[in-house]
Design a binder for these strands. Structure first.
Lengths: 183, 183
DNA sequence: GCTATATCGCTGCCTAGGCAATGATTGCCC
DNA sequence: GGGCAATCATTGCCTAGGCAGCGATATAGC
């Protein structure tokens, strides 16, 4: 395949990287504004969505799915757990693993907020045809896949929890709210 | 226009927001890896590209163009100036404004790094047809425009420097390298 | 059974970047 | 021509998130 870009013609206007970054920088704050009254971060929202969508899973899996730092995710989960939106339960079959579940309250929050998100996107994409949106989604998905394949293969394991539904018992013994908590 | 998304069918796989964020999170680190030996941040790179592309402009304009926090940009410029890649010159016609110019060294850096970037993107988009890439760029541009229009109208002024080429003189009197420098 | 290696969740540390406030300017508008 | 509001670059403050390192556990090789 003949290459698309040439050094002599490469500009920001036709650079996918620049456009991605710019749209990300523009969109994330606008998304967060939708959750202001629930004081949810966009990252927190994404975690809730991920759990709703893929059901029970582990922190490591969620981190990979939403492409987020695992260490940072721990702290997000701390808060979500404290607010009663998700549940952590240590797995019996693999004691390294903590199974995450959306509580009914957490699910409720998602269902409450979802209409706003949908409305936001419908408004934003107001003068895109359905075909164009589908195309955009498809192209972006392929881009993500390509970018994902380029990271030195942290192979995405089959979800260990996807077929078994038995899981351990509660372990919520007093988590600190945030970092920097040193009495 | 009939809306595209519905709350009942909204999932991450078909969500533009999720895809944008994910690709951004995936791509930015990979881009930065390209500049590791020059120890350039992706943000720094973007600033250099912006200056190369739009010629001399002001910090505020660059901040808007690349959609970056102006305060943070000051610090980026501090470093770029210290490394001799850009030049700050206070404008004579509007003394609030500092005109930014890419030095020859800065331009050289861009020219050196550009082939890598081009190669990276050509590789990443290896199994996209040219038409698909053009389509992606066009759709993303429209998305950016839509998202940009939604921010309460911080009206993008005509570049004040775009037609006059006279500008002030040097002002590089000892900038601190980084923040937190308080002797 | 025993060691080496990988993965899990978690923590401390550090930096980039968002936000708000500042002082210096400019232009608007009456 | 004299305020008033907007814009500029800059700064300090604070937080989210990337990174490296940890102990616990699991797995593979022998």
């Amino acid at each position: 395949m003949r290459p698309f870009y040439r050094a002599t013609h490469y500009g920001m206007k036709n650079s996918v990287g620049y456009l991605i970054r710019r749209s990300s920088n523009l969109l994330m704050p606008q998304m967060e504004a939708l959750f202001a009254d629930e004081s949810l971060t966009f990252s927190q929202w994404t975690v809730l969505m991920a759990l709703r969508e893929w059901g029970q899973s582990t922190a490591a899996d969620v981190a990979r799915n939403i492409c987020h730092d695992a260490g940072s995710l721990t702290r997000i989960l701390d808060e979500l757990e404290e607010r009663g939106l998700v549940t952590r339960a240590r797995s019996e079959t693999d004691r390294r693993v903590v199974a995450l579940t959306l509580t009914t309250r957490g699910l409720g929050t998602v269902e409450t907020l979802l209409p706003r998100v949908v409305e936001f996107w419908n408004g934003l994409l107001g003068d895109f045809t359905h075909l164009e949106i589908k195309l955009l989604v498809k192209l972006l998905s392929r881009l993500v896949d390509a970018a994902d394949g380029r990271r030195a293969e942290p192979r995405r394991r089959r979800g260990f929890l996807s077929h078994r539904h038995e899981n351990g018992h509660e372990i919520g013994h007093g988590r600190r709210h945030r970092r920097g908590h040193h009495p």
